[in-house]
């Protein structure tokens, strides 16, 4: 007589590998989506914070004063303004690159001078944290000094960015919900399949006095172990894919973002436990 009990539920012969493979694929998608969502969220927050505390000032020459001279004067004024942490003139190439996307291609014929800038000088301004200074006050200040400027308030961009992020978050949440429901359905089907294959054993246990909880627990442990393996497998592949993307040229993806993939196996096991318990009890309820 062996000293340890053998599993009452036999191994193998259940033919649930299609269900488990599907569950692994769903796990892969869910884990990859988690990584993308965390990375995207981090980038949005980071970018929005940068936008929130900054503005750009486009300076035009007026009268005898050249655009560059006017920009130098404006930079000096801005640097001495209370609430402005830093003001600096962008290099011409960078300024041109910044406005290139905003200028209609038909007007410029898609070409901008590479050395002598054709565009107006641009001053970047970063506000001191908590400062009451804003784009409107800077506009008023510079115009009162006789400068012709256009101050771009980045908070407008920031709000649009948040709107886009909210829509993306909603889509990601819906996609996760769909994956969650699909995973639940797959696990329910897998449980029903195993119960069908093991119906003689279930009848034996039922007649022998095993409670519904005992029988459900046995199947929960078995299906749960399959689900855990599939979920870890799917999440591992997602991590590998994300890491490959990071190496291949997606520096926006932080290594810490990959940790998001690890939350899925825990959720998957919970999905499996819930689905298996529900499916088993539904089948057992049909017995007297």
């Amino acid at each position: 007589m062996k000293s340890r009990s053998q599993a009452i539920l036999p191994h193998g012969g259940e033919r649930v590998w299609p269900h488990i493979a599907t569950f692994a694929f769903l796990s892969f998608l869910a884990a990859l989506l988690a990584v993308a969502a965390v990375a995207g969220s981090r980038l949005v927050v980071d970018f929005a914070e940068r936008l929130q505390g900054s503005a750009t000032v486009v300076v035009h020459g007026a009268g005898l004063e050249s655009p560059d001279a006017a920009a130098a004067r404006a930079t000096e004024i801005l640097a001495g303004t209370k609430g402005v942490a830093r003001a600096w003139m962008l290099a011409p190439q960078r300024a041109d690159a910044l406005v290139a996307g905003l200028i209609d291609g038909d007007l410029t014929d898609g070409r901008l001078p590479s050395t002598d800038s054709a565009g107006p000088p641009i001053i970047a301004v970063s506000f001191a944290p908590g400062a009451a200074t804003n784009a409107a006050s800077l506009n008023h200040l510079l115009r009162s000094d006789g400068l012709t400027v256009a101050v771009d308030d980045h908070r407008i961009w920031s709000s649009r960015l948040w709107q886009a992020a909210a829509i993306t978050a909603a889509v990601v949440t819906l996609a996760w919900l769909a994956l969650f429901l699909a995973a639940t359905l797959v696990m329910r089907l897998a449980t029903r399949r195993v119960l069908q294959v093991r119906k003689d054993l279930v009848r034996l246990l039922h007649v022998s006095g095993a409670s519904d909880g005992y029988i459900a627990g046995m199947f929960r442990a078995r299906i749960g172990s399959y689900a855990a393996l599939a979920a870890f497998g799917g999440a591992a592949v997602a991590v590998i894919v994300a890491a490959t993307c990071r190496y291949a040229g997606a520096p926006e993806l932080a290594w810490t973002d990959l940790a998001a993939a690890l939350c899925w196996p825990a959720i998957a096991v919970a999905v499996s436990v819930s689905a298996t318990t529900g499916a088993t009890r539904a089948v057992l309820k049909l017995t007297p």
């Binding site: 062996k2 053998q6 009452i8 054993l201 034996l204 007649v207």
Partner: peptide, 8 residues
């Protein structure tokens, strides 16, 4: 009610 063939 079957005997469980995988068990001793």
């Amino acid at each position: 009610l079957p005997l469980l063939e995988h068990l001793s």
